[in-house]
Nucleic acid binder design. Structure first.
Lengths: 341, 341
DNA sequence: TTGTAGGCGTTATCAA
DNA sequence: TTGATAACGCCTACAA
């Protein structure tokens, strides 16, 4: 059976209060008793029951993380970042995949609330804003990552999406591409909007007409990227370059290109958001926008830890915006050179 | 402030017992009171406190999962499998990355124990066997995945590693390769041993001498794979094919080949364990051993759920062995054809 | 069908 | 310094 404080106290011949004090490392205890308790605890293999402790102290030393899908490189490294700093401060993280599904997101939020996590880090859909606010009001600090939500007054760790995709598309334009397609994420998500805005801005700036036919929307999933790319390829006049707004859709798009034996970049150039480990290995090495994903995680964790310390104080809307980086490899080639060949 | 059952009861004008009964959905309650309670709970925004409940019921409805690294495709999909079925039964999973570090593994085991998870799924190092047994003895069921440990009497969801790597290496031999290198995982892990055994068996069967110089060991990490491949390439007589024992090391090995501009498979053929989404996209498309990772997860979860139901009954050592599949793409080419070119 | 009250394992107050 | 003892929020005999 599971050992309790009472067992320890009995074994050590002291009261539970004393046992609790030495094991909890607070209050006054004589050296003698301290030793006795420690020894007894070890002997019977006692481990404190966090449930009971939390019930009493109102601290669970756990934080909840809700992201859309651990399966991607981006979130995977955000999570590692979060964990690495949270663990260091003695916090445990419980992870939830919302799969971009507001319903699931809502359920996980409730679950985390019920489990009394001390704080939450979330990459939110835009459908549970009211509930997130409610949770915050109840005293649980929340930090947003990756996706901005104006209505929520807390710290948000973001990436300069518009700037990054602007740079990416401009890169294509500079290389001589003019018919540039885009495979975007779902419209409702701020991140998608921003990346799309960068795309439009770059085209506009170069006086390239925006052709709605070249613009596709997906749900950030592989299949969507694939389908979108297939549609693009099927056009009478397909694009000569494509900007893809995230990692999984890029994988899908590349798969489509492969299956249709389209030469990259000779027939279609491609540039993707997110820079997974395999980007340099594909054929040809993929030019990408690299997000500082691990840093997003560590910063989010640090900010949250701090908020948990100063609980109660009202938090303001605050944005920490990180700059992604364009990693130029070979999937965009150089339109001009290609033409001259 | 957080609402409690008492608040609900007060609001509904009944006793906490009644409120508890309707919210907990058990026992007798009049329709009238049921409605009143439900309404009150909703109005004040009540959510049960799982901590308190768990303390009383001894059930946390959460299971702990310890794997080496969520960052890999293999574990990522094992975890998705686990979660998908656990969630369906109302269980929550808390995830821990041990990074192959026995110390960390031990800490997480303790943490999960303290947090009173109802069950544990672990892909273990071989250093905490005694502690795992102790946890099991205390009544928490444990299921092992991916790595066999003879001394632990519980269900283990495994993959036929020896057979799979035997098939992989035989594939290379059939294609005409004779100088076949191996980049293995750490020796202490059963999985590594088994994969290495398959390699040896295939060579032996074809009367190919096993050259210790061609055999490298890594810690399942990317850098290791890279270094090992570099060493292999530096040999006066490098291998003409290499078998790599897991995904991350394969990534590293491919990176090394790329950086050294080694042509695959003309100069060195390569075959990797694990089949990440990007395998078909690399240059050339990678021949791999695909493990049924998602199934490993779902099965582990199902088995664990069942064990949690029949708690107390003593469990036996039992192995569920799944067959991986060789996915032939182009990274092994055909030695003979290459020679004839 | 309802309500009272004790207990889950800890922490923490207060008197000794 | 120590030890009773009252919470923490919930469940659940048991009595009514």
């Amino acid at each position: 059976m599971r050992k309790t404080l009472k067992d320890v106290a009995q074994k050590a011949g002291v009261s539970v209060a004393v046992a609790s004090r030495v094991l909890g490392n607070y209050g006054y205890v004589s050296e003698e008793n301290k030793e006795k308790v420690l020894k007894a605890a070890k002997q019977i293999g006692y481990y404190s029951d966090i449930l009971a402790r939390s019930l009493k102290t109102k601290k669970t030393y756990s934080i909840g993380v809700i992201i859309s899908d651990v399966t991607t490189f981006f979130f995977t490294s955000v999570v590692r970042g979060i964990e690495d700093v949270a663990n260091q401060s003695g916090y445990h993280v419980t992870l939830c995949n919302s799969d971009e599904d507001p319903q699931k997101e809502r359920e996980y939020l409730e679950e985390l609330y019920k489990r009394r996590v001390d704080g939450i880090i979330i990459s939110p859909t835009s459908k549970n804003i009211a509930y997130i606010k409610k949770i915050m009001r109840s005293g649980i600090p929340v930090v947003l990552v990756d996706r901005k939500i104006d209505e929520i007054d807390t710290t948000q760790i973001l990436v300069d999406n518009e700037w990054a995709s602007y740079e990416a598309v401009k890169h294509l334009i500079n290389l001589g591409y003019r018919r540039i397609g885009a495979i975007n994420g779902v419209k409702e998500i701020r991140t998608s909007e921003e990346r799309f805005a960068g795309y439009k801005k770059a085209l506009r700036e170069s006086d390239i007409k925006i052709d709605p036919q070249l613009i596709k929307y997906g749900n950030f999933r592989m299949e969507n990227g694939k389908e979108a790319m297939v549609e693009l390829l099927k056009m009478k006049k397909p694009p000569d370059a494509v900007f893809v707004a995230n990692e999984t859709m890029t994988t899908g798009a590349l798969l489509a290109l492969k299956e249709n034996e389209v030469k990259i970049p000779q027939e279609v150039a491609i540039i993707g958001f997110d820079d997974p480990v395999w980007a340099p290995l594909v054929d040809p090495p993929l030019t990408t926008v690299r997000q500082p994903s691990y840093s997003i995680g560590t910063i989010a964790s640090q900010v949250l830890l701090q908020k948990m310390d100063t609980r109660g104080r009202k938090t303001k809307h605050e944005e920490i915006i990180l700059k992604p980086k364009l990693i130029i490899r070979e999937s965009c080639g150089e339109k001009i050179k290609i033409k001259n060949k």
